[in-house]
Amino acid sequence: MTGSDGVRCTLMRGGTSKGAYFLAGDLPADPGARDDLLLRIMGSPDPRQVDGLGGGHPLTSKVAVVSRSDDPAADVDYLFLQVAVDRPEVTDRQNCGNILAGVGPFAVERGLVPAGDTETSVRIRMLNTGELAVATFPTPGGRVDCTGDAGISGVPGTAAAVVIEFPQGDGPLLPTGNVRDVVAGTEVTCVDNGMPVVLIPAGALGATGYEEPGDLEEDVTLADRLREIRLEAGRVMGLGDVEDATVPKISLLAPPREGGAVTTRTFIPVRCHPSIGVLGAASVAAGLRLPGGVGEGIAELPGTGDRVRVEHPTGFLDVETDVDPGTGDTPPVVRRTAVVRTARKIFDGAVFPRSAETAPIPAQPSGGHHDSAAR
């Protein structure tokens, strides 16, 4: 359904992000035509995205495409698309754990999954990497209820909790095979627990790790170093040329200030995240539990329990992670990862894209078929 009829769409806040959710059948099957339509829906390219749904920031220019799954291990398939703000680009080379928080409720409301009487669990296959997640959320009386008393940092007020558990993936936790590498002259830990992330002590790059995101973004010298490290890390992590990709993420680590395990400043890829992504935090938490990693001497891990509190510029994110550090020739593996997020429907209806001005853009390279994109 396009043109004067609009396109059926649900705008949702998922975690600390906001995105447009679509059924796959409501979008063109051709990736180029689909991406051209999404650019016009979101209002890109334009720094303000004034003529579309986007909010002028990568965190508010996201898309979820959802459909029934043919995988017996999943109920629905979820394709995440990052729509660039200031350039005509749509990419599927990463997952988004924040937008993931809204997929289960969206699937129930659109009739893809039947609701339970009190709560519902939806098994989700993330097409970007092939990984699975299970989202559990309240459905009193068989209806999605977004109201509740769960609060997450970076989001005003409270909402219903969405508990997201990530089964162990097939890919290595340490993509390079090493708990510590030297990349572009800097000691780092490269980890992938759902999102490829490069962990770096903030002090190694001349930062404290407590700066405001805007101040870090204005540091030209830091931006150049981040780019250099990210490009080399992409190669050694098996991601290839990441010049035009948003992964791997980079997280600067500093000792905690608010009772958590660590303070972070995360870049996507050079803009500093005002909080931290769910999957990025899952990778950070797992990386902190690796003996010999760069987090040693920085992080203050709890003496008992699996919960790791990751501090970020606007608060914290709790990740429950259980890691077997491995011994000898046995590599480390993650036995369990779970996070608590919230999601809220903002509107449901039809969105009207601006008129087509150019031919559909070419489809971007698919992260879902990139061997090293898996966890």
Rank of each mutant, 00 (worst) to 15 (best):
A343I: 13
V182Q: 07
P256W: 12
R110W: 05
G142I: 15
V323A: 04
T91Y: 02
D348R: 13
S355L: 13
L174I: 09
V333L: 04
D35Y: 08
Q168W: 02
Y78I: 12
L27M: 07
R68G: 14
F80L: 10
T263Q: 14
V76G: 02
C190P: 04
I41A: 08
Y78P: 06
S283H: 12
R225T: 08
L226G: 13
E119W: 06
R307M: 12
P201Y: 00
D318H: 09
E211K: 05
P255H: 10
I268F: 14
L216P: 02
P88W: 02
E232A: 15
D219G: 14
G293L: 04
S251D: 06
R257C: 04
G15S: 04
C96K: 09
S67C: 11
D318W: 07
A359W: 13
R289E: 00
V108E: 00
I229A: 02
G6Q: 03
I268K: 13
M12P: 04
P269E: 08
L226K: 13
P72G: 11
R225E: 14
P256N: 09
S283D: 12
G154N: 07
Y21T: 04
H57C: 11
R93Q: 14
V198N: 01
L23R: 15
A204R: 10
A160K: 03
P156Q: 01
A363L: 13
T91R: 13
Q168S: 15
G43F: 03
G55E: 07
A363P: 11
V65Y: 00
R180E: 07
L11K: 05
N98Y: 02
E89F: 07
V63S: 06
F80H: 05
L279N: 13
P365Y: 06
V65E: 06
I124A: 01
A343C: 15
P256T: 09
T10N: 06
V50K: 01
I229S: 01
H370P: 03
T139D: 04
T186I: 13
D244H: 10
